[in-house]
Simulated scan of single mutants.
Amino acid sequence: MNHPNISTIDLNLLRVFDSIFRERNILRAAHQLGMSQPAASHALARLRHALKDDLFVRSARGMQPTPRAEQLAGPVRQALNYFELGLQSGPFDPATSAQRFTIALDNASAVTLTAPIIEAVTKAAPNVVTELRPSGTLDIDRMLDEADLGLFIGRAREPRERFASEELFSDDFVVVHRRAENMPSPPLDLKALATRPHIRLSSAGDNTDFIDLWLKEHHAHREIRHSVPLLGCEAVLRQHDVLVITRRRIAMELCRGTGLVSDELPFVAPRVATNMRWHRRLDAQPAHSWLRQIIRQTTLDYRLIEAATARKAQG
């Protein structure tokens, strides 16, 4: 079988291929590349001829890749990624750069870190663009591989050699509720945890079975009245006399200016780590190194604020 020789292919055609593969639409791909639709169609025709494959077939869902295109997509994207990194290997000046960073965050990180990250990046690099995306339905590792994401922030994921990971901080758990007249002074006691109804956060990704195990050891149990998403739990807590057990940083955000309060658990709760995860090809890339340092400093500042708030609360 005769394979195409790389020397016979215009490498600019690979950018067209990559864009069509991503967009599934020639017009959108052309706009993304700053070229006309006829020019993009002509480039695709040339690549089809060189590779002797249709590559994309029109359908009701757009331009669907052939098996050959699916096979090529990963290596082409990776090659383009490394080429782009080579072009960006010079010094990074945050004061003048207009680079775009795409970051995915899990729900807990989105609630607690979105505002601090935007504030820190805007202050240090006023022209840099950050696209922060919820990670819930994303294939994080594939998107890091293909450079659709530069960074993931959230709970630790399965270690893989091609990815680097760094812990930013860890949280324990507290109880959030509206203050009721007959609520005992903190920390909450066994009776309060067992007799007051609870709600469970359905989108925070945390397993709070540890509270059930502790109650069982004390011959008690709790009633979980509802499961609600993190973004909707504040309104439920303000309107109903219920408890929710959640990470301390989430609790801080829920209680900020809402009239809700957080209390300590009557036992030492487990801790959950929040990590950064990125592809190792970006380890020494100046812009990405700068971004990671900004996020490290942001979370350090956040920890200092937490410590100061705790000292103030203690007297």
Rank of each mutant, 00 (worst) to 15 (best):
168 L>E: 01
168 L>F: 01
168 L>H: 04
168 L>N: 08
171 D>K: 06
171 D>E: 15
171 D>Q: 15
174 V>I: 12
174 V>K: 03
174 V>P: 05
175 V>M: 09
175 V>L: 07
176 V>E: 05
176 V>N: 02
176 V>S: 02
176 V>D: 00
176 V>T: 07
176 V>R: 03
176 V>P: 09
177 H>F: 06
177 H>N: 11
178 R>Q: 11
178 R>P: 01
180 A>I: 01
180 A>C: 12
180 A>V: 09
181 E>P: 05
181 E>V: 12
181 E>D: 12
182 N>L: 08
182 N>Q: 07
182 N>R: 13
183 M>F: 05
183 M>W: 08
183 M>C: 12
184 P>S: 10
184 P>C: 08
184 P>T: 07
184 P>L: 07
185 S>W: 01
185 S>E: 08
186 P>C: 14
186 P>K: 10
186 P>G: 12
187 P>E: 04
187 P>V: 03
187 P>K: 07
187 P>G: 07
187 P>C: 07
187 P>M: 06
188 L>F: 11
189 D>P: 11
189 D>G: 15
189 D>S: 13
189 D>Q: 12
190 L>R: 15
190 L>Y: 04
191 K>Q: 15
191 K>D: 14
191 K>C: 08
192 A>T: 14
192 A>Q: 12
192 A>M: 03
192 A>D: 06
193 L>G: 11
193 L>N: 05
193 L>K: 13
193 L>A: 10
193 L>H: 08
194 A>H: 11
194 A>V: 10
196 R>C: 07
196 R>T: 15
197 P>T: 07
198 H>V: 06
198 H>S: 13
199 I>A: 04
199 I>H: 02
200 R>C: 01
200 R>Q: 11
201 L>F: 02
201 L>H: 00
202 S>M: 08
202 S>F: 00
203 S>I: 04
204 A>S: 14
205 G>E: 09
205 G>N: 06
205 G>I: 06
205 G>C: 10
205 G>W: 02
206 D>L: 02
207 N>I: 01
208 T>M: 13
208 T>N: 13
